[in-house]
């Protein structure tokens, strides 16, 4: 991939095929677009390689997963290892119904930002800007 600086930050937002909840994610996608972030919205993925492939093809800077079914730990573990296998160092952020105890576990796996219940779309947007500034 050519290192030429892209004009805008690009984020892939997606969720697991089984995931029903999406009010939160819809709000975040909207807020990101309003803030000048280019969003690739991939409604649902079936397996981790699919996410890796889309992230690669769309040349995104961040992958965001929404999970409220309770499978977040499984999803984080699987996705991060799939990204690593492919040699990709794209930061992963997650949001949804995630308890405090699990937030610690997700951080250990290397999830960069976790937005549990009560987080706002604005928090996600400012996190993305801050993270990519440093990245």
């Amino acid at each position: 991939m050519e290192a030429a600086k892209k004009e805008k930050i690009r984020v892939l937002f997606t969720r697991n095929l089984f995931e029903g909840h999406d009010i939160g994610l819809r709000g975040i996608v909207h807020k990101c677009r309003e803030s000048g972030i280019e969003v690739v919205y991939y409604p649902r993925f079936k397996d981790f390689n699919e996410v890796v492939k889309v992230a690669e093809e769309e040349d995104v800077d961040i992958v965001g997963i929404s999970s409220s079914s309770g499978a977040h730990v499984y999803l984080a573990e699987g996705l991060i290892s799939s990204l690593r296998e492919r040699g990709m160092d794209i930061p992963l952020i997650m949001g949804g119904v995630i308890s405090d105890k699990d937030i610690l576990r997700l951080k250990e796996f290397g999830v960069k930002g976790i937005f549990g219940p009560g987080s706002t779309p604005d928090e996600v947007v400012s996190f993305i800007f801050t993270l990519l500034d440093k990245h």
């Binding site: 095929l17 089984f18 079936k46 079914s69 309770g70 499978a71 730990v73 499984y74 999803l75 699987g78």
Partner: peptide, 10 residues
Amino acid sequence: PMAEGEVGVS
């Protein structure tokens, strides 16, 4: 295999 991570969860 697709059920992994979701069995008995919700």
